[in-house]
Computed example of a mutant assay.
Amino acid sequence: MTLRAVMIGDVMALARGLSGMPADRQCIACQQAFLRTHCADKFRKRLGRVHPRWGDGSLMAFALLTYRGKRHQDLGNRAFLSALHAVLDQLLQWRQIQAARGETARRAGQVSQQQGHPTGPVWRDFEE
Rank of each mutant, 00 (worst) to 15 (best):
T119Y: 06
L81M: 15
H85R: 15
L81E: 12
F80L: 04
L65Q: 15
P118V: 11
W123P: 05
R68M: 07
G55H: 04
R46S: 08
Q115D: 11
L92H: 10
D89F: 12
L88K: 12
Q96Y: 07
L35R: 09
F43S: 04
A99S: 06
A86K: 07
A99M: 08
W54T: 00
R124N: 13
L92F: 05
V50F: 07
H51G: 03
A100Q: 08
V122F: 13
G102D: 15
G116L: 09
P52M: 10
R49E: 10
R78S: 13
N77T: 05
L47R: 13
Q96G: 12
G69D: 14
M60Q: 15
T37Q: 00
H117A: 12
K42I: 12
G76E: 13
A105Y: 06
G48I: 04
A63F: 03
A83P: 06
R36E: 10
G69A: 08
P52Y: 05
S58P: 07
W123Q: 10
R53F: 07
C39W: 05
G69H: 12
F43T: 03
H38K: 02
P52S: 02
I97S: 05
Q73C: 12
T37N: 00
F43N: 07
L64Q: 12
G57E: 03
H72A: 11
V50R: 11
R95Y: 04
T119V: 14
A79S: 10
G102S: 15
H72L: 08
F80W: 04
Y67H: 15
D74Q: 11
K42M: 05
G55F: 14
L88V: 06
D41N: 04
F62D: 00
R53H: 13
A83I: 01
G120Q: 04
K45V: 02
L35V: 09
G109H: 05
G48M: 02
F80A: 03
H85T: 09
R49W: 12
A61M: 02
V87K: 00
Q114A: 14
T119M: 11
R106W: 02
Q98H: 11
F62T: 00
R78P: 08
S82N: 13
A105C: 06
G48T: 05
Y67C: 06
R44V: 04
R95W: 03
S112P: 02
D56I: 00
R68W: 07
A100F: 03
P121W: 09
Q110A: 10
S112M: 15
R44D: 04
T119C: 07
N77G: 04
G69R: 09
H72G: 07
Q93V: 00
Q93E: 03
T37Y: 00
R106H: 14
G76Y: 12
H38N: 01
H85D: 05
L64W: 05
R49D: 09
G102I: 03
Q90F: 03
V122W: 13
Q113F: 06
R95L: 01
H85F: 10
A100D: 05
Q115P: 01
T66L: 02
K70G: 09
W123M: 08
Q110C: 11
I97F: 14
E103Y: 14
Q114W: 14
A79Y: 09
W123Y: 11
D74I: 08
H38F: 05
G48V: 03
Q73H: 14
W54H: 10
A61E: 00
Q98I: 10
Q114L: 08
R68I: 15
G76L: 09
F80T: 01
